[in-house]
């Protein structure tokens, strides 16, 4: 549990468009230990998906990783060639996307698609791959996997498709699973089934998971450690219990207060003023200053650093700057 499986160091991913450079991810650093489940939470445009795509080197033109390292087992993935990264992608690190219908190929059976992933990375024949696919489908809770093996994606419901995606992602026993909003397109009852499935599999196979979501409820139920992102930067990082109990950054506080809670009596929801910024219209100084209720003059001029404190948390805010600087 102590060894870092993945280390993202000072990642900058920018998009070079006709209208100028859009800095989607700006100096993100975090690490994932073996068997750990970490959550990245944030709103649209905060760079959470771009971060996950950067890890797998799936950033296409006009996007580019301009700076930073992504160390997986001590090796920097940003220096890998396309051929080398393909050996990692879908094998050691796999990914589940938000919309299961668009991420499955509609003209192949689901069995074909899972077998393909297996045969690509493992030296097995067709028959063996089929056997493994069927047992994976059974593992993710598909009823009658022998028959479903021959089903086309459109015949399955959203929850079933997401199970297929998980089966495919797990086909090579990955060490790290990146799940980008895996349940956002699903109903709550199905979401519960999928989350439980992911949790069980991670316990059973000791797979690390990076769970990307905007839903704090999902975070609270699933993860060990939380990274909160805003405007392409990490604004707070802490273990899940401390973060929910004692959020430090005003944005984290705002997010928690603006989430309606089912188990509490009605009190007025506190919303965060203003709008979610797109990466090309961030204010000067601290990214959050124009929406922050505690903004001071200093916040409008200078951008704060992410500061770690001794209890293992870190926060990027001028209100919490007395401690040592770790990351410039």
């Amino acid at each position: 549990m102590t060894e870092n499986l993945l280390e993202v160091k000072n990642l900058h991913t920018h998009f070079f468009t006709e209208n100028g450079v859009i800095p989607s991810v700006n100096g993100v650093s975090f690490s994932v230990k073996k068997g750990e489940v970490i959550g990245i939470v944030g709103e649209s445009g905060c760079g959470k998906s771009v971060t996950s795509l950067s890890i797998l080197q799936l950033i296409n033109k006009p996007g580019k990783i301009v700076e930073g390292e992504i160390r997986f087992h001590e090796k920097d993935l940003t220096t890998f060639s396309e051929k080398e990264i393909r050996k990692i992608r879908g094998n050691k690190i796999s990914m589940i996307f938000q919309e299961p219908l668009t991420s499955l190929n509609p003209v192949f059976t689901i069995g074909h698609q899972i077998s393909e992933a297996i045969r690509l990375h493992q030296d097995v024949d067709k028959k063996e791959a089929k056997q493994r696919s069927i047992s994976l489908l059974r593992k993710v809770g598909m009823a009658n996997p022998e028959r479903q093996y021959h089903a086309f994606p459109h015949l399955l419901s959203g929850g079933m498709r997401q199970r297929v995606m998980i089966a495919m992602a797990l086909s090579c026993n990955p060490e790290l699973l990146i799940a980008d909003e895996p349940t956002t397109a699903l109903d709550v009852t199905i979401q519960k089934q999928i989350l439980k499935l992911m949790k069980n599999l991670s316990n059973e196979l000791n797979t690390s998971i990076i769970l990307i979501t905007h839903d704090l409820g999902v975070i609270a139920e699933m993860v060990d450690r939380v990274v909160v992102m805003y405007g392409g930067e990490i604004v707070e990082e802490n273990d899940v219990y401390s973060l929910f109990e004692n959020p430090k950054h005003p944005y984290t506080k705002g997010l928690l207060n603006s989430t309606p809670k089912i188990h509490q009596l009605k009190e007025k929801l506190q919303s965060i003023e203003g709008n979610v910024p797109t990466p090309d219209q961030l204010p000067s100084g601290c990214n959050f200053q124009d929406r922050c209720p505690f903004a001071m003059d200093k916040c409008r001029e200078l951008s704060p650093n992410l500061v770690a404190s001794t209890d293992g948390s870190s926060v990027r805010c001028w209100l919490h700057q007395e401690k040592e600087v770790v990351n410039v």
């Binding site: 709550v188 979401q191 609270a220 899940v240 219990y241 928690l256 989430t259 188990h263």
Partner: peptide
């Protein structure tokens, strides 16, 4: 099935 945003109730 609604996830509760409070890890202590997990």
């Amino acid at each position: 099935a609604v996830p509760i945003p409070d890890p202590s109730l997990r």
